[in-house]
Structure formats: C-alpha cells, structure tokens
C-alpha cells in the first residue's frame, strides 16, 4: 500500500480544542467533558498568553474555511476576553468525518469534535435572556492542517509531526520521547529508580532526580494529597503538558494492574543515567503506585 493510501485509510486523526479567555474559569469542567469522551485521548494541554489577542484570533482563523472577513463580527467579542487561552490537543481515535457547508466553503469536519464543542458551548457560552449566546468559549479544529498550523503558531516548528511522532513502533511510548531503535526489557529494583520532579516556578523551573518516596505522587498515595495537588496546580499545562488530574490518579491507583491484558507491553520507560541507576522517562505515577503497594522489583523497558 502506498503512503497516500495508508494516510487515507488510517483510523485516527489529531484535533485540538481552544478555550478562549471567556471559558478559562470553566477550564477544569471543559477538560472533564473532553476526558470523558470515548475515543478521544488528550495528548497535550497548554496555556498560552498571546501578545495580541486580535492578532492571535486572526492567526487561528486564517486556516478556517471561511475568509476572516466573514468571521470578523463573530469573533469581535474575543477582543474583550482575558488575553489567555488554553489548548487541548487530542488524538481522535474514531473520527466521524462529514462534509459540511455548500459551494466554495464546503469542507470536511468531524462530527464527534463538533458534538463535543457544541456540548461545551451549550454549557459554558454566556447566556442572555436564558438563551445561549454565540460568544463561544471554545473553538475546535476541523482538520489536521489546522492542528498543524496551530502548533506552528505556538512555536512548534514541526507542527503536527510533534503529535504524530512514534518513538518506537513496537513499544508503547508517548509521542514526546525521541525516536529509538533499541530497548531492553528487564526486571529492576525500585531502589535503582529515580524520578524527575520539577522544582522552581511555572516560569522558571528545573528538573531534579529524586527517589520514588520523595515524589509528590508517592506522597499523594501515602495520604499527603496537598503536595501532589499543589504540584499540578503549579506546573500543569505549563511545563507539565500531559493530562494529569487528581481524579485520574486516584482512579489509576485503585484499578492499576501493571502489564496486564491489553497493557502487556505498556512498560515503564527508563534510561540508565549511571551504571545501575535509572531515571523514569514515562511512568512516574505507575512507579509510585507499585512502590506504594510494596512491589520492590518490576519489569521496565530500558531505552538506549
């Protein structure tokens, strides 16, 4: 099969939701709606503070199907909103693509993304006389070229390739790791593991390798929920771009079964940073749960 055909027949696509300044107070609930949508996986969340809202709005809509002149009046309200936006990049695992519109502006979009953004708008768009206004709190992508454009606007020069990155075709690994060809699966002691934890402020932070017991994750499991909650509040959607939440972690800690059934190759990923010492690249939450449960050694994938 040639690559064009493969591209056409693939089952998933990437999308984004952009929460405008008027939706920021509902950020958590909006995330909750997206999180609970079946077949949508949140890959990256981030705050963005555009220098000029007007210019940012123009950039966002420059990849829309209708010329910006047509959207000017519809987006005027955005100039009055807080100059901050929240972006949620997702993997849409079962897109339902349809054609919408007529004539020159006929375009393809995903019904699923449309229905999620409509649900968010119904709940959080400002209301006048009991009716939903068209001052949308959320904007969503229609196609992947818009996602690519948005990532480039945010400064990711590779655009959508950032999200499409498959570090290794055999091993389940998050998109943000660099590509690797070799790895070793072996059992190691939890004492050999260190986790990178962020220190400092949201704007000026550094990574520090600490033992598992000293992570906010382990503290959370031990009953000190504040440490983890504050950690997320401080760094989430900034330096921490993955979709973490207290509720999700609580659910994971309850149901987690390492390498069971369909997760048989979802290993904790580590890298050896000193002989016999490993740093966790993906899986700090899982490592903390295993340690908290008293599991002293477990299989990991050591990436070269």
């Amino acid at each position: 099969m040639n690559s064009r055909a493969a591209e056409y027949l693939r089952k998933e696509r990437y999308d984004y939701f952009l929460v405008w300044g008027n939706g920021i107070p509902h950020k958590e609930e909006i995330l909750g709606i997206i999180r609970s949508t079946e077949s949508i996986e949140i890959l990256r969340i981030m705050d963005h503070r555009p220098r000029s809202v007007a210019r940012f709005v123009r950039k966002v809509y420059s990849y829309d199907y209708a010329p910006f002149e047509h959207l000017k009046s519809k987006t005027r309200y955005l100039l009055r909103t807080e100059p901050v936006v929240f972006l949620i990049f997702v993997c849409n695992k079962r897109p339902r693509e349809i054609y919408r519109g007529e004539g020159a502006f006929r375009h393809i979009e995903c019904e699923l993304i449309k229905s999620v953004s409509e649900e968010i708008r119904n709940r959080f768009n400002p209301r006048k006389n009991g009716k939903r206004t068209e001052e949308h709190v959320v904007h969503a992508s229609d196609n992947e070229s818009q996602v690519d454009h948005m990532l480039k606007v945010l400064g990711f020069k590779n655009g959508i390739e950032l999200l499409k990155n498959v570090p290794n075709p055999i091993l389940s690994s998050p998109y943000y790791l660099p590509k690797f060809k070799e790895f070793t699966i072996k059992r190691i002691s939890s004492l050999q593991l260190h986790c990178n934890i962020l220190r400092g402020t949201r704007e000026s932070f550094r990574k520090e390798a600490v033992e598992i017991e000293k992570t906010p994750h382990f503290a959370f499991l031990s009953g000190d929920t504040m440490f983890y909650t504050e950690y997320l509040a401080k760094f989430l959607s900034g330096p921490l771009a993955s979709d973490y939440s207290v509720q999700e972690f609580r659910a994971l800690s309850r149901d987690f079964a390492y390498l069971e059934s369909s997760y048989a190759t979802s290993y904790i990923l580590v890298r050896e940073f000193r002989p016999g010492r490993y740093i966790v690249l993906d899986g700090v939450h899982r490592v903390s749960i295993l340690k908290f449960r008293g599991v002293d050694s477990f299989p990991v994938a050591v990436i070269k």
């Binding site: 055999i170 091993l171 060809k181 070799e182 070793t184 699966i185 072996k186 059992r187 048989a264 299989p299």
Partner: peptide, 23 residues
C-alpha cells in the same frame, strides 16, 4: 514482536532479559 514480548514477560521472573532491536 509485541506478542513475543507478551510471552517474554513470563520469562523475566526467571532472570531473562529481552533486547529488542527495530532494525
């Protein structure tokens, strides 16, 4: 390869290491 690893997990307890190279 994933299926091989699936079974391979069983051998990790017996002291095996599995090295995978995506040539």
């Amino acid at each position: 390869a994933k299926q091989i690893l699936n079974v391979g997990n069983w051998y990790l307890d017996k002291g095996f290491e599995i090295r995978v190279t995506d040539e």
